[in-house]
Simulated scan of single mutants.
Amino acid sequence: MVKRNIALCIVLSLVTCGIYAIYWMIVLANDTNAASGHAQDGTSGGIVFLLSLVTCGIYGFYWAYKQGEKINEAKAMRNMPADSNSGILYLILELFGLGIVAYALMQSELNKMA
């Protein structure tokens, strides 16, 4: 797991018209799988991107919700306080077109664990 500068990730996502956001989603999925112990059985970042592409973004909503659950599992493994509503928050942000905010919140939680 790598600590990433959230502000830089947001700026790069905006400057590259979302191409960096795709990369960021892929590494978020992989880092969350590693942190929560789902590295072998979890959906890899590349598969998450492909499924989101094939389903016209619908899988992205499900992925955002599951990210909240996996981050809570990773926090519980580290005896950190977990917020049971984070998956719902990420889902709502994705539904309203604020996926980059959800990515920033996910990255913030992963940075705390790194």
Rank of each mutant, 00 (worst) to 15 (best):
L93P: 04
E94A: 09
D83Y: 09
L105S: 04
L110K: 04
F96E: 01
Q107V: 11
M106K: 09
F96L: 09
F96N: 00
M113R: 03
L91C: 12
M77E: 13
E109H: 02
P81G: 02
K112N: 15
K112H: 14
M77S: 13
L98C: 14
L95K: 02
M106C: 08
V101A: 15
L91I: 05
M113W: 08
S86R: 13
A76W: 00
E109F: 01
A76R: 15
L89Q: 08
A102L: 04
S86A: 14
A76C: 06
L93T: 03
N85L: 13
R78M: 14
I100L: 15
S108Y: 11
I92F: 03
N79H: 15
D83E: 13
A104T: 14
S108E: 09
M77H: 06
A76P: 03
F96T: 00
F96C: 06
Y90R: 05
Q107Y: 01
M113S: 05
M106Q: 14
L93Q: 10
D83Q: 12
I88W: 13
V101D: 12
L110D: 10
Q107P: 07
L95E: 00
D83W: 02
L89W: 05
L98M: 15
M113I: 05
I88C: 08
G99V: 03
S84A: 13
I88V: 15
S108W: 10
K112C: 05
A102T: 06
L91H: 04
N85I: 05
L91S: 07
Y103A: 14
V101Y: 08
P81H: 00
M113F: 11
L95N: 01
A114Q: 11
M80G: 08
N111G: 12
L98A: 11
S108L: 08
A104R: 08
Q107N: 11
G87L: 05
I88G: 11
G87A: 07
A114F: 08
G87V: 03
L98R: 03
I88E: 05
N111H: 07
S84V: 10
M77W: 04
V101W: 00
I92W: 00
A104C: 05
I88R: 12
I100S: 00
P81Q: 12
I92Q: 08
S84T: 15
L89V: 14
D83S: 12
G87C: 07
A104N: 07
Y90N: 03
I100Y: 06
N79D: 15
A114G: 15
E94S: 12
N79A: 11
Y90P: 04
G97T: 00
A82P: 01
S84E: 14
K112L: 11
A76V: 08
A114H: 09
L105H: 06
Y90C: 04
A76T: 10
L91K: 03
Y90W: 09
E94D: 11
I92H: 01
G99S: 06
N111Q: 05
S86K: 10
A104E: 01
I88T: 13
A102R: 05
G99K: 05
E94W: 13
